[in-house]
């Protein structure tokens, strides 16, 4: 890659300086290219991530048209504009800016690997605090069995109106009697239980710190679905 030093090169062993220069030149061009591709794809990647997140939040909070991002910092929930991490939560609002619920995340071991869950939590409803939706963000459960935790609409539907009082419990399929019980997936009891355990643990983490008064809707300036990056970031 180094054009200059080559002119005087003979068949002798090159000097260390030349070796270093060669490497430096190669590294320099490599760096240029990498910066170029990074800048060229930055916006698309950011948009993809934001859209993915937004889809997940909207999925677990039915009726939501806009959202705001918050973060749990030292027992307090504060507005947050950085990159999402495990302490990030989202508040979802309806068309008129009325508060609908929080989208909370949790992660924990499943049958194969860590399962990442996002779920919609509604602090107040006619049945008390409840879940209004659940979606799996990431999992490597057994295809055909454990992956039913997100492929089986019936199982996912369990979480559409699920009371969290006293605590969510998994029961054998078809024996659900209480509002706080979840029908397990036949043949994938472990994955089903893992999802519920993750949610229960996440509830213990989040619920005590959620503010009594729901956050304000974000100032609405444009149409409800502008460039998603603006709302999340």
């Amino acid at each position: 890659m180094s054009e200059q030093p080559i002119q005087q090169m003979t068949q002798q062993d090159p000097t260390s300086t030349r070796l270093i220069i060669s490497m430096a030149v190669a590294g320099f061009f490599s760096g240029l290219i990498i910066i170029g591709i990074y800048l060229a794809t930055f916006d698309t990647i950011k948009e993809n991530k934001a859209r993915e997140l937004k889809e997940a939040v909207f999925r677990v909070l039915p009726g939501v048209t806009q959202m705001s991002q918050h973060r749990l910092e030292k027992d307090r929930v504060v507005p947050y504009a950085g990159d999402p991490d495990e302490n990030t939560l989202y508040a979802g609002f309806g068309e008129n800016g009325d508060f609908i619920g929080y989208a909370l995340t949790g992660a924990g071991p499943g049958f194969q690997d860590t399962i990442k869950v996002i779920y919609g939590y509604q602090p107040e409803s006619d049945m008390g605090a409840r879940l209004i939706g659940m979606w799996i963000l990431d999992s490597r459960e057994t295809p055909g069995l454990g992956d039913k935790i997100y492929k089986d609409a019936e199982f996912v539907g369990n979480f559409d109106a699920l009371s969290i009082e006293p605590t969510i419990k998994v029961v054998k399929k078809g024996t659900k009697t209480k509002n706080s019980e979840v029908d397990a997936i036949t043949g994938a009891t472990i994955s089903s239980k893992a999802v519920v355990r993750i949610i229960n643990i996440a509830n213990d983490k989040w619920l005590p710190h959620l503010p009594v008064n729901p956050p304000e809707a974000p100032p609405q300036t444009q149409t409800p679905t502008p460039s998603p990056t603006q709302e999340v970031q």
Binding site: A26, F29, I33, I37, T41, T44, I45
Partner: peptide, 19 residues
């Protein structure tokens, strides 16, 4: 260095096109 550069290019391109 050369290979790694192209791998990075491929990595970012795929991340942008087919997340």
């Amino acid at each position: 260095v050369i290979i790694a550069t192209f791998v990075t290019v491929a990595d970012y391109t795929l991340l942008a096109l087919v997340p």
